[in-house]
Design a protein around this nucleic acid. Structure first.
Lengths: 233, 233
DNA sequence: CTGCGTCAGTCTTGTATAAGAATTCTCCTA
DNA sequence: TAGGAGAATTCTTATACAAGACTGACGCAG
């Protein structure tokens, strides 16, 4: 056998989560049962579960069990919303405006999104912090993966919780490109600020549990009183 | 015993690296020898070594051995220098100007740096990419941890490799706050750009293997043709 | 005698397995 | 209602074997 047993177990569990056999919040078989079922020892099953926990796909609690990770509004904010208050605490944004539309994918969007979709949904939102319009973001997702998303307004604050609950798509990781630019006309009017004012532009590619790119997001932040906080390791 | 054995082993190994008993590049005892020496089994020693590898403190190679990680100019760039070319490849900066000075620590610096140092060294540098002045950075380190740093000019491109080789301080992780601001007079003249032009400002706190904050760095980037690339997971 | 390739030996980490300890929750009982 | 026994789970530790990698001895050709 070329592939280690525990990697086969990992693949089996991921397949079950993708197929919907294991839904978010569901309890996985215990280490012992999983080993018996798949014909491996408890230790091997355990090694697979440990790696899935490191990747954020499941949660384990001693004495309780292992569970498929649930993307709640809270943890989605904490993990993927990086704007911080001056004291370092998490900034909590409110939703001010929202527009959802359906359109044909641009060539560069189709090239980056999984499945090279023809149709996409676009979600444009303006967010406020303490009443000030500080965030303008445009998200693009393949229509085929998110059927009916354009008829669900108003959308919740945390999109990734919705993605998981309504469309069975769990965002696991993201890649971002950050730059400082001068606000263009569109951004300035959305944020109610002056044209050519410095804003932070973040281009995000979000990947699901199967490592497919399922969302492109372009965000613009006013960072006068808040900063984007990240960790390098 | 309240603390698991393998965590004790981790602490022992980290202490040996901090003390200089294990220098960068040195080979650690094999799993078997380490277990015998510390009175634990090979499996327990292995669990400790696996976690140290996950934390980037050591490197392991099957059939060869385990080695204390070496901070080379290449991997320091790759891990902590996040500016990327438009095609996503790593941008490689050159050094244009450099000034090293020694001064008293400001209150906010002493409060953040490990040991609340009175004296600090300040390294101010301008970097270029393809000949264009795109990066202006100011690093502040405690003088007591970096004796004689101010007499070492010219400094190498990758400071963190120098920190490890010359001062036995290994930067393991960093926290950054990012914002888009208008360039002030000082930054604009350093970068040779217009005042109030949008630039990206990155405030970094760098931590060593003992999780002490040993460097504060304030960087300013011109991001017209390059972007700051990060991963969220 | 020298140079080179091969192959066995040995040292290393990687993988698989198992048993007992610690933790958590449930449920029964006083 | 409080407390304790019990069952279920993960966590810790231990051991055996497999796989990869370097070393050195050996043999053979030049």
């Amino acid at each position: 056998m070329t592939e280690p047993l525990y990697k086969t177990v990992i693949g089996t569990l991921i397949d079950r989560i993708i197929s919907g056999e294991l839904v978010p919040g569901a309890m996985l078989p215990s280490e012992h049962d999983l080993g018996t079922e798949l014909g491996v020892s408890q230790g091997t099953a355990r090694k697979a579960l440990e790696e899935l926990e490191r990747r954020g796909i499941i949660k384990r609690r001693q004495g309780v069990g292992s569970f498929v990770a649930v993307r709640t509004p809270e943890n989605a904010m904490f993990q993927f919303f990086r704007l911080r208050n001056p004291d370092g605490t998490q900034a909590i944004p409110d939703l001010a405006e929202e527009a959802v539309s359906s359109r044909n994918a641009a060539a560069c969007e189709a090239g980056q999104l999984s499945g090279a979709p023809e149709k996409v949904h676009e979600i444009v939102r303006v967010r406020t912090i303490g009443g000030a319009r500080l965030i303008y973001e445009k998200s693009v997702v393949p229509a085929v993966l998110f059927p009916g998303l354009d008829q669900r307004a108003p959308l919740p604050n945390a999109l990734y919780a919705l993605y998981q609950q309504a469309f069975r798509i769990a965002i696991v990781r993201a890649e971002e490109s950050i730059r400082a630019i001068a606000a263009d006309q569109e951004t300035a009017s959305a944020l109610g600020c002056a044209v050519s004012r410095p804003v932070m532009r973040v281009e995000r590619k979000a990947f699901d549990i199967a490592d497919r790119c399922v969302e492109l997001r372009s965000s613009f932040y006013v960072t006068d009183h808040h900063a984007y906080g990240i960790s390098l390791s």
